[in-house]
Amino acid sequence: MTTTTLSTAPLAAAEPAPRRRRRRSLSPGKRLPAARMAGPLVVLALWAAASAAGRLDPAAIPAPWTVLETGARLWSDGTLTTDVLTSLERAGYGFAIGLTAGVALALASGLSRTGEALIDGTVQLNRAIPTLGLIPLFILWLGIGETFKIAIIAIVVYIPIYLNTHAALSGIDHRFVELAEVQGLSRVRFIREIVIPGALPGFFVGLRLGVTGSWLGLVVLEQINATSGLGYMMFQAQNYGQSDVILVGLLIYGVFGLISDSAVRLVERRVLSWRRTLSS
């Protein structure tokens, strides 16, 4: 019995330990630096390569270097500077009004059944009506000057902000409300410590959509009785067949949209740094 034990002990010690299977990671991985610029840079490279190879009609789609030369010429003339500042001013005023209205209406509707009964149905009806279809009516009400342009941009902005913020408020777990009642939180502390943190993710989604919507609405509105602005510049270039000027305006709109969306993402990442999400 002793001999058997001694003979098998070295064999058991020599057996390799079973390998531990490495668990496969399902997350997307680390965030790449400046990853969102990869797509636009690829498109720009393909555009430049097709232009250099003569695959694109210069009259319809000028080469990137031609567009840059046109933009530099317009900038040095001072016309592009005036148009850019005018567009930024219109978009800024409309966005500020829309942001304020969207947040205020969402809070009033999301925190009160009376407010929801009075506000939510009206906003849903407004959402179902094409906003640009309101232009003729707003011209009759507000005239054909700057006021109706800012009003239309504000409507384009406030709808997504309201919808996403209201949905986030409605989606707050009721157990947090019960916990706040048990802890005896006041209405102000309840809003500050539970409502606002719970609604911030939805608010930022609506904010990103609102920022993009302000630029989309501006393109159309600046072609109606305007004497300056990027949309006006593109409309005049269309009449004279200047496709390079049109592409300058489109690229500026795209850059503004990308910068504003990136700014909102940066603020969102800082404000919601306490969250552990798939994107982080």
Results as ranks from 00 to 15, higher is better:
58 P>L: 12
181 E>R: 14
257 G>P: 02
205 V>F: 01
240 Y>W: 02
236 Q>I: 11
18 P>F: 13
146 E>D: 15
86 T>R: 10
186 S>D: 08
119 I>F: 09
14 A>D: 15
201 P>D: 02
265 R>F: 08
260 S>M: 04
217 G>Y: 05
179 L>G: 04
247 L>C: 06
143 G>E: 00
99 L>P: 05
114 T>F: 12
166 H>V: 05
69 E>A: 14
9 A>R: 14
268 E>L: 03
245 V>Y: 07
67 V>I: 15
148 F>T: 03
173 D>I: 02
215 W>V: 14
129 I>A: 08
8 T>D: 15
46 L>C: 11
244 D>A: 14
65 W>K: 05
247 L>W: 03
80 L>M: 11
106 A>G: 01
266 L>K: 04
173 D>E: 10
139 I>W: 03
33 P>N: 12
2 T>P: 08
83 D>F: 01
262 S>W: 07
32 L>S: 04
199 A>D: 09
124 Q>D: 11
46 L>V: 10
9 A>K: 10
29 G>K: 05
64 P>E: 01
151 A>V: 13
42 V>H: 01
122 T>F: 08
23 R>L: 14
253 Y>T: 00
111 L>T: 15
107 L>A: 14
242 Q>G: 00
110 G>K: 03
266 L>S: 11
91 A>L: 03
21 R>T: 10
186 S>W: 10
20 R>M: 08
4 T>Y: 13
243 S>N: 14
275 R>G: 05
53 A>C: 11
22 R>H: 02
272 L>N: 03
66 T>K: 14
194 I>Q: 00
218 L>S: 03
200 L>R: 07
128 A>I: 12
201 P>G: 01
87 S>F: 10
7 S>C: 05
261 D>H: 00
149 K>E: 03
21 R>Y: 09
54 G>P: 09
49 A>T: 07
151 A>H: 07
239 N>Y: 02
73 R>S: 14
199 A>H: 01
237 A>P: 00
221 L>T: 06
130 P>F: 02
59 A>L: 11
26 L>Y: 11
263 A>N: 05
23 R>C: 08
130 P>E: 00
189 R>H: 12
116 E>H: 15
170 S>N: 12
187 R>I: 02
162 Y>C: 01
25 S>R: 15
248 V>D: 00
57 D>K: 01
221 L>E: 04
